[in-house]
Measured scan of single mutants.
Amino acid sequence: GVTLFVALYDYEARTEDDLSFHKGEKFQILNSSEGDWWEARSLTTGETGYIPSNYVAPVDS
């Protein structure tokens, strides 16, 4: 299955590639091989962008 991640904090995008999000928003991670910045798709907005990996945690299934 796909592991979903949930935002622990609000984040405001600093570049066009970043994804702004709110605490509690859920994400599907598309690429986590880039280190501290993961490519993710928000399940709330459907938008794709980079998120700071230390702002999210796995959702307990």
Rank of each mutant, 00 (worst) to 15 (best):
G1F: 12
G1A: 10
T3H: 03
T3C: 09
T3K: 13
T3V: 02
T3I: 10
L4R: 09
L4F: 15
L4G: 13
L4H: 14
L4A: 07
F5G: 04
F5W: 08
F5K: 10
F5D: 01
V6D: 06
V6S: 08
A7I: 00
A7K: 00
A7P: 00
A7Y: 00
L8W: 03
L8D: 11
L8T: 15
L8Y: 03
Y9I: 14
Y9G: 12
Y9T: 15
D10V: 01
D10N: 08
D10E: 04
E12K: 14
E12I: 07
A13Q: 15
A13Y: 02
A13K: 09
R14D: 08
R14V: 11
T15R: 15
T15H: 15
T15Q: 14
T15Y: 08
T15V: 13
E16N: 08
D17N: 15
D17S: 10
D17V: 06
D17W: 08
D18Q: 12
D18S: 13
D18R: 14
D18M: 13
S20Q: 04
F21S: 01
F21P: 00
F21R: 00
F21M: 11
H22R: 13
H22N: 09
K23V: 06
K23L: 04
K23R: 07
G24E: 11
E25I: 02
E25M: 08
E25A: 05
K26N: 13
K26P: 03
K26W: 02
K26S: 06
Q28C: 10
I29K: 10
I29N: 02
I29S: 03
L30K: 04
L30N: 03
N31R: 07
N31V: 08
S32R: 12
S32H: 08
S33V: 08
S33E: 13
S33F: 08
S33D: 11
S33N: 06
S33M: 11
E34W: 04
E34N: 03
G35A: 10
G35I: 12
G35P: 09
D36R: 09
D36W: 07
W37T: 14
W37S: 14
W37F: 14
W37H: 15
E39S: 08
E39P: 06
A40L: 00
R41P: 00
S42Y: 02
S42C: 13
L43V: 08
L43D: 09
L43W: 05
T44N: 06
T45C: 04
T45N: 14
G46A: 09
G46D: 09
G46N: 15
E47C: 09
E47I: 08
E47A: 08
E47K: 15
T48I: 09
T48M: 07
T48N: 08
Y50H: 07
I51Y: 01
I51H: 00
I51V: 13
I51P: 00
I51T: 01
S53W: 06
N54S: 11
N54I: 06
N54T: 11
N54K: 10
V56G: 01
V56Y: 00
V56K: 01
A57L: 11
P58Q: 14
V59F: 10
V59S: 14
V59R: 08
V59G: 08
D60S: 11
S61K: 02
S61R: 09
